[in-house]
């Protein structure tokens, strides 16, 4: 019976029929999705912090409202994704518990500090650019609620990268100090951004299964290459230099070759030894703990009101 179900399931996947929450699915499919979607949600929420760091210091009102709206969107995206994950049978509070205890991971990029205003540009341009590269194929992922959440996310994200690039462009057309600020931000965010696509395909043990289940559509290396290929010309328009001596066009491959990624750094940051891991997690835990009395009070008030309503109905 089990084998039969599994075959039917895989057949649906092959036919591009979406899997919906109450459909039968292999336990491992459910677990893989739950891990991926909740990590994705955590990344959105933790990702609010590095940019949130500059909201109160944005250099003018136009930039301030754009940044505020962008960081708010990330909260929304986290929310859509938690909702999608909840359909797999874990509550949002449980997922947050896993984040707060360090059991669940989030994207390592957010463990780097935002030091200057140019970082708002570099994050929007590179980090959101890399995220979009990852996310567009996820709009067709095999699990219905995840795919629908991603459609909404991608629609909203489209202003994020433009917002970032516009900041970079303004800096690059500005004073020497501004241009240097932009270059410095590119230098610091480039490598972490291309690490966002995850380990090389040879070292990515879960990838094959995820591809078979059509959770993923492209491999880490394919997406990384695609990102680098489109980003080079964007960098040229800015007049900036990508901090990679080995970056050059390879005619025969039809792609840019690039230098070796420092996986040791990547693994360290994943393992908690990035510049801001502690601050990020502490900020989330603090917000959650400081909010406990607020959430409790709202629950208590709702219960009181519901009781009052019941009593008055009975009396009538």
């Amino acid at each position: 019976m089990e084998i039969n179900l599994e075959e039917q399931f895989q057949a649906k996947i092959e036919q591009e029929i979406k899997i919906e929450p109450r459909d039968w699915m292999p336990e491992k499919y459910r677990k893989t999705l739950l891990r991926q979607i909740s990590q994705h949600a955590h990344s959105e929420i933790v990702g609010m912090l590095p940019e949130g760091n500059w909201i109160t210091r944005a250099p003018n009102l136009r930039r301030k409202v754009a940044l505020l709206a962008k960081v708010q969107d990330e909260a929304g995206h986290g929310l859509y994704l938690y909702s999608a994950a909840e359909t797999l049978g874990m509550s949002r509070d449980q997922m947050l518990e896993e984040l707060h205890t360090g059991k669940a991971k989030y994207s390592s990029i957010f463990n780097y500090p935002t030091l200057t205003w140019a970082d708002m540009g570099a994050i929007g341009w590179l980090v959101d650019g890399a995220a979009i590269m990852n996310q567009v194929p996820l709009c067709r992922t095999s699990y219905g609620p995840y795919a629908r959440a991603m459609v909404r996310v991608c629609k909203e994200e489209s202003f994020h990268q433009r917002q970032g690039y516009e900041i970079m462009l303004t800096l690059c057309k500005g004073s020497e100090a501004q241009k240097a600020m932009a270059q410095d931000a590119l230098n610091r965010w480039w490598w972490p951004s291309i690490m966002m696509f995850g380990p090389n395909d040879d070292n990515s043990p879960n990838s094959a299964q995820s591809m078979k289940w059509k959770i993923k559509r492209f491999s880490n290396d394919e997406l990384r290459q695609k990102f680098i290929d489109v980003t080079v010309s964007q960098t040229e328009i800015l007049g900036l230099t990508i901090p990679d001596k080995d970056l050059k066009w390879n005619e025969s491959r039809g792609h840019y070759d690039f230098g070796t990624i420092n996986w040791e750094e990547f693994n360290n940051v994943v393992a908690g030894k990035g510049p801001c891991n502690k601050e990020r997690l502490n900020a989330r835990v603090k917000a959650w703990e400081n909010g406990a009395w607020v959430r409790d009070a709202a629950t208590a008030y709702a219960e009181k009101r519901a009781n009052k309503k019941n009593n008055s109905t009975e009396a009538a």
Partner: peptide, 18 residues
């Protein structure tokens, strides 16, 4: 706007930012 990212629950973080 100082609250953005630090609200007591996601939905209210969004509400106050609005």
């Amino acid at each position: 706007s100082e609250w953005c990212g630090h609200g007591p629950v996601l939905e209210q973080d969004i509400a106050l930012t609005n």
